[in-house]
Every structure is written in C-alpha cells, then in structure tokens.
Nucleic acid binder design. Structure first.
Lengths: 144, 144
DNA sequence: GAAAACCCGACTAAACATATCGGGATTATT
DNA sequence: AATAATCCCGATATGTTTAGTCGGGTTTTC
C-alpha cells in the first residue's frame, strides 16, 4: 500500500520547482543535491514527468527544468500517475481499465477497491503544488 | 500503490467466512478451492489473521475456520492491517510510528501523505464484512 | 489408528525497486 | 571554434519483496 521512491522523490522535486517557479530553469544536479537524491535516479524520474507534460526542460548550459504550468494547475495526482501509473489498490479496478475484469459482476470485494481508488484519487487531485508550498510554509512556522 | 495478493485474497476469504457465518468451521481447503487460491498460500494468510484475533480455528477432522466476531464487528481495515502492516503511503507517516521522522517539521510533502493515509484508513475502517456481504448481494442482482 | 484438518518454519523463482553506467545531443559562454 | 554545462536515454546491475512451494509437525474426530 505504498508509493515507490520514484513517486515520493518526484513529488518532492516538483514541490521544489513550485517554490522556485519563475526563477528560471533549475538544473537537475542542483535539485539532486538539495534534496539528497541520486542525480542519475532523478534523471529517470524527470523523463516521464516531462513526457507527461508536467515539466519543461531547457537544454544546454544554463539549462534545467521548470514547471510546465503554474503550481496551482498541477495536481499531486498528476505527478503520482505519471510516475506510478494509474491509481489503483488492486489491478482489476485500475483507472482507465473499465469493465475489463470478467468477475466484475460477481466479485463481492470489488466495491471496496473501487471506493478506495476513488477516494485516493480525490485526495491526490485536490492537492495542487500551490497547496504543497502553502503547507510547507505553515509547517515550518509551527516547527520553530 | 497496490495491496499485495495476500491482502486481496485475505479479504476475499474473510468475505466468504462472513457469508457462511454460523455454518460451523469451514476447512481451508474448501475456501481455497472455492476462491481458486493455492491452499498452501492461503495457510500463510490465515496464520496472521488468527494471530490478530480476526478468525478462530478448530483443529482436527471436521475442523476449519470461522470469524472470531460477527461480520459487522470486523472492518476491512483490520484485515488489511493484519496482512499488510500499518496503512501508509510512505513509511515516514506509518500508523503508530508517530514523530519518528526527523524531517517531520521541514518536510513540505508530509501533509500530503498524512492526509492520504487518514483517508485510506477511514474508507477501509468504514466498511465491515457485513457491508461486503450486502454489496455482493446488490452486485449479483444488478448483474443478472 | 487412520484420516482430516490446522500449524509453521524454510526455501525458491520471478518480479520489482532502486539505482548505476556509458555515452549521445544541445546550447551558452569564452 | 572549443569548452563546459546540461539534458537525453537505453542498458545493466544489485537488492528486496512477492508469491508460491515444500516438508514435516500437531490435534481431533470417527
């Protein structure tokens, strides 16, 4: 019932891009150092994020990555889906895979997983990167 | 973001025990056959369920398993926790592991996972085995 | 005492997660 | 034009987890 390191790192990295939005592209190496994540592993994470249209890249010297949209337009659910695939507690109720399970009509537990899937999606789609930035703000104030 | 086969099979098997509650102990072999699950794998699943006090076993010939409590007293969340451990999308916010993460106060993403964890717990704890039996009833009526 | 059933640790093959490696392509700066 | 910074990306390696098997034990009924 866990997301992978890719998902976790991806959300953290995107949160950083959100914080520094409009500051020009940030090189991946810097993100890796600041978050304490392997540079080469982060590369693997940013590839699908770019292909999903969540980030934009600038190649060459002085290049790096920026959010492809303002933070309030990017939902945590988008990031998780790009890195982990469709949200689903069990395969047979995966988002976008409707009606494929042949036991659909006789499976007594299907309803559980559908409800769980929908709730998980809702939570992750309700939270945008702008919200994450705000939450971080609040947390560090409390923390001091 | 998926539960394992143990969790899925466990919930299915418990749903069957709920349906046949008060019919005397059901042998594991029968459950395995009826659900199409390997008998030896099911054994591995029923051990933690018993240790968690969710099922009662009767040894010897004519033995088998029954729910340890009425279906309406057993929550799907109990089953999942017994088989998968604490509910948590990431380790650092695992149920029962409060305050252990040292980045707790500076982590901008912690709030996401806490909210997701709480919502997942709520959903799974809201559904009892009695509800699952009812849902199955409804589903098969629609299906025909 | 034989058969039915639970009990339970140890093992294994395959899949998955978490990286690392090696090099190529693009662009800013000098 | 050369250099350095940076993204691009397939292949490989390593470790862990999952899903399932094996082999034997214990308890109880008939």
């Amino acid at each position: 019932m866990k997301i992978t390191a890719k998902g976790e790192y991806g959300v953290r990295a995107m949160a950083m891009l959100a914080r520094d939005y409009r500051a020009g592209p940030i090189p991946l190496r810097e993100i890796a150092v600041r978050e304490g994540i392997s540079y080469q592993f982060l590369e693997q994470i940013f590839l699908p994020l770019r292909r999903a249209g969540l980030i934009a890249s600038v190649r060459g010297a002085k290049g790096g990555y920026t959010l492809a949209h303002p933070p309030e337009k990017i939902r945590v659910g988008d990031i998780v889906r790009a890195l982990e695939g469709p949200i689903a507690p069990v395969d047979c109720v995966a988002e976008g895979k409707n009606n494929s399970c042949r036991r659909k009509n006789i499976c007594p537990t299907r309803g559980i997983w559908e409800k769980l899937r929908d709730t998980m999606s809702e939570v992750l789609d309700e939270i945008t990167l702008a919200d994450v930035a705000t939450m971080a703000q609040k947390t560090s104030e409390e923390g001091s």
